[in-house]
């Protein structure tokens, strides 16, 4: 259920998030200088190594002291510090528009918080909406000053129709061939299955996180009686008489579904996390995500 819009990040949360930084388990090449170590040797103040001078090298990095002692030219190499690419992929399908707060609100809040951490650490933060056309996708944000643009962009995301997770991930991967951290925020409730979509992610040299957002109503449905359940995305109908027996079966099916998602992610080196909309955002980030190693 949609609720009245509220600020995605409260000042208290921002203050707490400011101390955190995103951690990548892999070191990726960035595009611009940032705060992170790069596999490339660059121009930071931290010494890395020497190498033989070859013509064309920047003379500023020649070690003149060594040249004086050994009469040979060596080039000083420094660790390069670069930025990190953080992709926040938000599923904005209509199925995300349920719960209090809605799963989409929750996902946006989460994306804002993680994006903020990235921006603070001078990482490139890109928000992608699953299934949305390329034209409507936001550009990459960088720097603390971009926070408000990021937040505006997130706030503007509205639930839209049916989302094909597979198609969405495919397009995302085609559009963003680079490396970095990809955080998928979705409920994974796709009748075609989530496996194909996640496979695209697994094939990429990225540090992938899958945060499955479910509402409390999905985990423990407050339904009874004879009902005609209508699918919010495709309008599919299911006649059910909700009894204790059926609820028991539903919970069993849900457990199977969640464990299959978790196992799928683990087997492919992705980090899986289940988040319900009842867990406050800061608890999730400072608690769960920290324990999973995404932030520190």
């Amino acid at each position: 259920m949609a609720t009245a819009p509220q600020p995605l990040l409260s000042p208290e949360l921002l203050a707490r998030l400011e101390r955190l930084e995103l951690v990548s388990r892999k070191i990726f090449r960035g595009r611009m200088k940032g705060d992170r170590r790069s596999p490339r040797k660059g121009q930071s103040i931290e010494f890395a190594d020497f190498r033989q001078y070859v013509p064309g090298d920047d003379l500023r990095f020649l070690d003149w002291n060594l040249y004086a002692r050994l009469d040979r030219l060596f080039l000083k190499m420094f660790l390069e510090e670069e930025d990190l690419h953080l992709f926040l992929v938000v599923d904005a399908s209509r199925s995300m528009n349920f719960g209090t707060p809605t799963k989409l609100e929750y996902a946006k809040q989460l994306a804002a918080a993680l994006g903020f951490i990235g921006l603070v650490r001078s990482d490139r933060v890109k928000v992608e909406v699953l299934g949305a056309p390329a034209a409507s996708q936001a550009p990459a944000f960088r720097g603390r000053a971009s926070l408000w643009r990021l937040l505006d962009h997130l706030a503007a995301i509205e639930p839209t129709g049916e989302t094909d997770l597979t198609e969405g991930m495919k397009h995302f991967c085609l559009r963003n061939p680079g490396q970095g951290i990809v955080i998928l925020l979705s409920d994974l409730l796709d009748k075609r299955g989530f496996e194909d979509g996640l496979r695209y992610l697994a094939a990429r040299p990225v540090d992938a996180y899958v945060i499955q957002v479910l509402s409390a109503e999905e985990l423990d449905p407050p339904l009874t009686g004879d009902l005609m359940l209508v699918d919010s995305e495709d309008g599919d109908k299911a006649d059910v008489t909700v009894s204790a027996h059926l609820l028991k079966r539903y919970r069993k099916t849900l457990d199977t579904f969640l464990s299959s998602a978790r196992d799928y992610c683990h087997r492919r080196g992705m980090t899986y996390l289940l988040a319900t909309n009842q867990v406050p955002c800061d608890t999730l980030i400072t608690g769960y995500l920290r324990s999973r190693g995404l932030v520190r």
Partner: peptide, 20 residues
């Protein structure tokens, strides 16, 4: 008449269909 089931919108009937 009684069996005209009350429509209830859910995020997805995916799990329900699997259950039944």
């Amino acid at each position: 008449l009684r069996l005209r089931r009350a429509p209830q919108e859910v995020p997805s009937t995916y799990l329900w269909l699997k259950s039944i």
